[in-house]
């Protein structure tokens, strides 16, 4: 019995890592992910958005405003551990992978993995009451799986069925759940308590998981997925490494804001961006600073 349980546990762990590692690095400075973010505008997005704002705006506003991080003392060491591991192993492998594979191949691999993960999107469309979007997403999934050769070619986008990004964390938010504490999970990266149940729904809705576990190819399939996902995020992590003076905080805030953006389906209300809450104390507005010089 032990002979079976051991490897399977490892396999599921690998699978989880595949699903979320990308999420781990997915702060919105991500150029790759930005594409996904910008495409989350279904035909009825405004309508759904309006409904959601009415029911749930409070909790999202609160999320974006909160910079509290009760688990910071635990999160920071885990973040550093993940980052060290990434810099030592995963990032170099991803760079090597980019060097030896043509862009077209990487796009095809990305398409296959994203298509396999798409039933989770459809499930969460339904759970959020986005039935029209669910229909379009289901058609998209069928097109890409059949005509698109198991997802290799993104036929859906070509015929105007745009890709959406939904997950169980977003569903919980729309159901009124608060964000919960920010959480950095070893190897998996940034999360909030509200986002963690999605690991479960993403796993059980992924056909690739069942196919590869049945054929004992889970580890290689997961490994390729992880490497490919990490490769897609190389630009994003480069931007972070260049810009961030505190990468931990940078990642945390970008992660939370990106999540809020996705919950709003890419259309946060303009008031969401105002800065009144940032104004701590009055009285220093009149101070003059005429001597802004630049030194090259």
């Amino acid at each position: 019995m032990n002979r079976y349980q051991g490897p399977r546990k490892v396999s599921i762990f690998f699978w989880l890592a595949l699903h979320c590692l990308g999420g781990g690095f997915a702060y919105a400075q991500s150029r790759q992910n930005e594409a996904v973010g910008a495409q989350t505008t279904g035909p009825d997005a405004a309508e759904v958005d309006a409904g959601m704002e009415a029911t749930n705006e409070g909790s999202i506003e609160a999320d974006a405003a909160s910079s509290d991080d009760p688990l910071e003392s635990v999160n920071r060491p885990v973040y550093n551990f993940n980052d060290t591991l990434d810099k030592a192993i995963l990032e170099p492998i991803a760079k090597g992978y980019v060097e030896i594979t043509p862009r077209l191949v990487r796009t095809g691999i990305t398409n296959i993995y994203e298509n396999a993960a798409y039933l989770n999107v459809i499930l969460n469309d339904i759970l959020q009451g986005k039935f029209e979007q669910a229909g379009a997403d289901f058609t998209r999934f069928v097109f890409n799986t059949t005509l698109g050769l198991a997802g290799l070619v993104d036929i859906g986008t070509a015929v105007g069925l745009e890709k959406h990004e939904e997950d169980f964390g977003q569903t919980l938010a729309k159901w009124g759940s608060g964000e919960g504490a920010y959480l950095v999970i070893p190897l998996l990266g940034p999360n909030t308590v509200r986002d963690t149940p999605d690991y479960g729904t993403a796993l059980v809705t992924n056909p690739l998981f069942y196919v590869s576990i049945a054929n004992a190819i889970l580890i290689p399939v997961a490994a390729v997925g992880i490497i490919n996902k990490r490769a897609n995020l190389l630009d994003a992590t480069r931007l972070r490494d260049e810009a961030a003076v505190d990468p931990y905080t940078f990642t945390r805030e970008a992660y939370r804001q990106r999540r809020a953006f996705l919950i709003y389906d890419g259309h946060p209300p303009a008031e969401h961006y105002d800065v009144d809450e940032f104004i701590e104390q009055e009285g220093t507005e009149d101070e003059e600073f005429d001597d802004i010089l630049f030194i090259k």
């Binding site: 919105a28 910008a38 974006a64 961030a244």
Partner: peptide, 22 residues
């Protein structure tokens, strides 16, 4: 301009969180 928001990520919020932490 006070803030630039790229795909939902506010530059001001990000910097504020970072700088106050540092």
């Amino acid at each position: 301009i006070l803030n630039v928001i790229a795909n939902g990520v506010s530059d001001l919020s990000l910097k504020r969180a970072e700088y106050t932490a540092v």
